[in-house]
Amino acid sequence: MSAEAVDLTVRFGAVTALAGVSLTAPPGRVTAVVGGDGAGKTTLLRCLAGALAPDAGRVVGPAREKIGYLPASSGLYPDLTVTENLDFRAQGYGLPRRVARQRAGEYLERAGLTAAADRLVGRLSGGMRQKLAVIAALLHRPDLLILDEPTTGVDPVSRSGLWWLIARAAADGCAVVLATTYLDEAERCAGVLVLDGGLPLASGSPEEIVAALPGTVRAVPARPAGPAGDRAWRRGGGWRVWEPGPPRGADAGGADAGGPDPGGTGAGGPDASGVAGRPAGLAAGAGSLITPDLQDAVTVAALARQAALAGQSEVARPTGAGTA
């Protein structure tokens, strides 16, 4: 069954951790909650898991015993062994011992943890511990699996192991909600909610978020001078600059989203949507128009909000002229 958080507001004293945030997690899908430190990811997940009552809004979801939750702290006992931790969790959720042992064995095998079954959790490496924490959270086959940054600080090999477990749970029909700081992980999810300072910044599928990007993005070799510099960010070896405009997805955005970079040649052949929204004056030589990915889209969303907050009308004003 799906889980839903509607219009959640959570305050901790004077700090508003969440302000009117909604999230829907359909079964069989992985939904990512993305955001920087203090964005409200953990607070949202705690509300979904029932560990925190929101000040306003509501949470609809499965019963407590059908939720699996991996808190940011992993929720495992460092002074118990791998097997003992799983035993405790299984008993807590009322799983018959035989079923629990069989499932645990299967998951441990898949995660490459069989040899570590009798080791103390406190002695495990970070990646092994996270894999175990995810196994512990899904051992009772929950309908809703909530994972708070399961892959943070985990090496690439363990990360792929973790993703195998997560994808398997989703394939079994579980609604998975996970918080992550990695946008490449969010890009593989069916749904993404981007949070910033407790406010929703963007939501939808990765394609929808990219399509909703207002304006265009160019790749440039160096940070542009002038006001455009405030709309630039480093990406790989170069820089990207955002030119405000109407949403890309307004006409053709959906078609080329995720496709190969049409402007990669640097010849300045802008696509139709780019021309429509792009202010004139930014010389073709100043950079090539690219198809933005989720990371670009999230960055632009944050820039757009900053601009709006600063009360600037820059979003609507053509500013490219000075940068040429």
Binding site: G50, A51, Y69, P71
Partner: peptide, 10 residues
């Protein structure tokens, strides 16, 4: 940090 886990368990 296991208290949080206990809080959400049934």
């Amino acid at each position: 940090g296991t208290l949080e886990q206990l809080a959400v368990m049934p």
